[in-house]
């Protein structure tokens, strides 16, 4: 997708975000209000200025028919999907199970690893995670049942 259009959408998003925080800030009590109010107002104004400037840039570019930077979108979305899928798996199955499933499928489908090497890697990671957890006193997310 065209980078300038994306920039426009992003600044539009930021504009609405700052508008939301501005409206929300109005409900706070006086002492909690001033800081978020100041920065929201500054944010609203600046993003609005940027938004207008961006519209102009696009308008000018269309006239000149310059080369526009095109950003690929599908590929990153796929990988973001993997990350979110992994987190969902953790939510359902707890970290250990989710890691096994995620690592195994990712290594085979995305990294094109052989079954055996993927299997070995997964086992290694499992050992490391459990060792680390007992040695470094770290915790990991459990699923709803507490597995």
């Amino acid at each position: 997708m065209n980078k300038d259009y994306l920039n426009l959408i992003f600044s539009g998003f930021l504009f609405s975000l700052f508008t939301f925080t501005l409206i929300e800030a109005l409900t706070f009590s006086k002492l909690a209000q001033f800081f978020p109010l100041y920065i929201s107002v500054a944010g609203v104004i600046l993003t609005f200025v940027y938004f207008i400037a961006q519209v102009f840039t696009i308008y000018k570019q269309q006239k000149k028919e310059e080369n526009q930077t095109i950003l690929p979108l599908l590929q990153p979305l796929k990988y973001i999907g993997w990350v979110i899928g992994y987190l969902l798996l953790i939510f359902i199955g707890g970290l250990l199970l989710a890691t096994v499933i995620f690592l195994f499928t990712f290594l085979i489908f995305e990294s094109k690893m052989k079954l055996l090497s993927a299997g070995i890697s997964v086992v290694f990671v499992l050992i490391c995670v459990s060792l680390l957890s007992s040695a470094l006193d770290i915790y990991w997310p459990t699923n709803l049942i507490g597995f």
């Binding site: 930021l14 700052f18 909690a32 800081f35 978020p36 920065i39 944010g43 600046l46």
Partner: peptide, 28 residues
Amino acid sequence: PIKGIISGILGLLIGAVGSAPAVPEYRY
């Protein structure tokens, strides 16, 4: 510069989430 300033403001806003220092009130 304008992108930098907006980015900084966004950071300030994320930092404002939670308890306010002047009064025990939660925000965002």
